[in-house]
C-alpha cells in the first residue's frame, strides 16, 4: 500500500472527472469534513478514510486484500480503468444520469449497451462521450457507461440506436466474481 504518485493521481482524477466533473475536489475536501485519501495496493486504487488506512498499515502488503472502496485499477500499460465497486461514489457525485426502463434492466445487467428503446429518462444537456451513471426507474444505481449521443440527438434516434455504451454494471459482482476486489478474501 502506498500513496499515488503525481502521474497516477492525474490519471485517476482525469478518469473520475469524466463522470463527476469538478466534484473530484469534493472527494478530497469532503462535505462531512472527514479525511479521505487514495491508496494504491497491488495495482488497485482505493479510496479510504485516513483512520482505516492507518489501521491497514499494520497488515503486510502481501496479506492486505483490500481496504475502503476500490475506485479502479492500473493496467500494465499504466492506464487507469474504473471499476464497478466505486458505483456508490459515482452515483453520489455524478453530473449526468440515465434512467432505464424496466424492460431493458436485465439486458444492461448482462453487459449490453443501452438502446433508445430502453431509455427511460436522461439528464438535460448531456454531451456526447461523457460518463453517465445508469439508474433504474426506482432510482437504484445499476452501473455506468459513456454516452454515444447527446440528449438532443437521443430524442431523434431510432429505437435500436445505442445511446449509452456499457462500461460497468452491478451484474459484474456475479459475472466476474473472481476479479472483484471486494471478493478478494
Amino acid at each position: 500500500m502506498r500513496p499515488l504518485t503525481e502521474d497516477e493521481t492525474r490519471a485517476v482524477f482525469e478518469k473520475l472527472s469524466k463522470f463527476i466533473g469538478t466534484n473530484v475536489k469534493l472527494m478530497i475536501e469532503r462535505k462531512d469534513k472527514e479525511i479521505y485519501c487514495f491508496r494504491l495496493q497491488k495495482d488497485r486504487v482505493y479510496y479510504t478514510s485516513e483512520e482505516l488506512m492507518k489501521k491497514a498499515t499494520n497488515i503486510s502488503r502481501d496479506s492486505l486484500a483490500c481496504l475502503g472502496t476500490c475506485v479502479g485499477r492500473f493496467t500494465h500499460h499504466k492506464k487507469f480503468h474504473i471499476l464497478i465497486t466505486c458505483l456508490p461514489l459515482l452515483s453520489e457525485l455524478c453530473e449526468f444520469k440515465v434512467w432505464l426502463k424496466p424492460s431493458q434492466e436485465m439486458s444492461f445487467l448482462y453487459g449490453n449497451h443501452i438502446l433508445k428503446a430502453g431509455l427511460g429518462r436522461i439528464t438535460e444537456n448531456t454531451p456526447q462521450n461523457t460518463g453517465v451513471v445508469v439508474y433504474n426507474m426506482a432510482g437504484t444505481p445499476l452501473g455506468f457507461g459513456v454516452t454515444a449521443r447527446t440528449t438532443q440527438e437521443a430524442r431523434k434516434a431510432g429505437p435500436t440506436d445505442i445511446i449509452v455504451l456499457h462500461q460497468g454494471d452491478v451484474g459484474e459482482y456475479l459475472r466476474f466474481e473472481e476479479q472483484n476486489p471486494a471478493c478478494a478474501v
Partner: peptide, 20 residues
C-alpha cells in the same frame, strides 16, 4: 511517499487538490 505520517496526509491532500 510514506504510506502514512502525521504531516504527510495534509501535504498529500494539498497536492491532490492542486492536481485536480
Amino acid at each position: 511517499d510514506p504510506v502514512s505520517n502525521d504531516g504527510g496526509i495534509k501535504v498529500e491532500r494539498k497536492r491532490a487538490l492542486k492536481i485536480a
